[in-house]
């Protein structure tokens, strides 16, 4: 359970840690959006360079980011695989029925692989350097415009901060139940697919049961203390926007300009196709 890096916070004092969470969240979302406008190989190199720079200034070693990718790698490889075999174009190396392996397909596969990896790394960088509670505040701030439409965002934020708050507990608990069932002779990660799925049951049920119990207790406590989410309230933690926060958004501008320029140069593509 300790292997899951995405969603974890590493205390620190790097430049990335000090940027306002709203700026960080906006920038991360923008970056992820921008990834889908990159057309050519050189553009991806540009984005990869930027991502490496971000991991560098986060003060956390790259190997930790890579470890964060590991649990998801099969999922990624599978979707990339489908992308590759369903895309046809350029030189065709192999084909059978609707499936084919072509140079164009491989290129697109490479692109989606890159997108997945970069999205994970950037989101990891965001959560590694932002306290979950700050992140919730940021989400709350970004959702504020919705209030004008009469949508209550406070409830959503509360839900989010409670869920984030309990992720570590859930992970700890999973570890405990895992150990307890191991002690009762379950060997996880062995046997065929069906057997492995069966082994999940003794893990999931106790976790469900304790989560439900906790949710109920939590609801009771909120009620007993007279909490009403719809009321307008002030905030204990104040976010303050400073110059370097604006600067970090400006960097996104630079990144975008780079992408627009590089989108004119299908260098590798011309050579390949």
């Amino acid at each position: 359970m300790n292997k899951l890096i995405l969603g974890r916070y590493f205390p620190g004092n790097s430049f990335l840690h000090r940027i306002d969470p709203r700026a960080k969240l906006l920038a991360a979302l923008y970056f992820i959006g921008l990834l889908f406008f990159v057309d050519y190989f050189v553009g991806f190199i540009w984005m990869i360079c930027f991502t490496l720079l971000v991991t560098k200034i986060s003060g956390v070693s790259l190997s930790i980011y890579l470890k964060g990718i590991k649990p998801l790698i099969w999922l990624i490889l599978m979707s990339v695989f489908f992308r590759v075999i369903f895309t046809v174009g350029g030189t065709i190396y192999f084909s059978k029925g609707p499936f084919a392996i072509s140079s164009y397909g491989l290129l697109l596969g490479f692109f989606s692989f890159n997108r997945f990896i970069l999205i994970i790394i950037i989101s990891t960088a965001l959560t590694l350097t932002t306290k979950p509670i700050d992140l919730t505040d940021a989400i709350d701030a970004l959702l504020k415009p919705l209030r004008l439409l009469g949508i209550s965002t406070a409830e959503f934020s509360l839900m989010l901060s409670i869920s984030l708050r309990f992720i570590p507990n859930l992970l700890d608990e999973t570890q405990k139940v895992l150990d307890a069932q191991r002690a009762r002779g379950v060997v996880f990660g062995e046997g065929n697919l069906l057997e492995q799925m069966k082994k999940i049951v003794p893990l999931i049920i106790p976790l469900f049961s304790s989560s439900l119990k906790r949710a109920e207790e939590m609801a009771d406590v909120l009620e007993v203390r007279g909490y009403q989410p719809s009321k307008k309230r002030s905030s204990f933690r104040q976010l303050s926007w400073r110059f370097h926060d604006t600067a970090s958004l400006l960097i996104m501008g630079v990144l975008t300009i780079g992408v627009i320029i590089l989108n004119q140069f299908p260098i590798i593509e011309q050579w390949l196709l």
């Binding site: 405990k176 150990d179 307890a180 003794p202 893990l203 999931i204 106790p206």
Partner: peptide, 25 residues
Amino acid sequence: NKATLNQVRSRVGMVFQFPENQLFA
């Protein structure tokens, strides 16, 4: 190795703290 671990576990019973949290059936 896993085989040894499992054999040991079949000889050693471990009751964790608050073991009722592991009930599932």
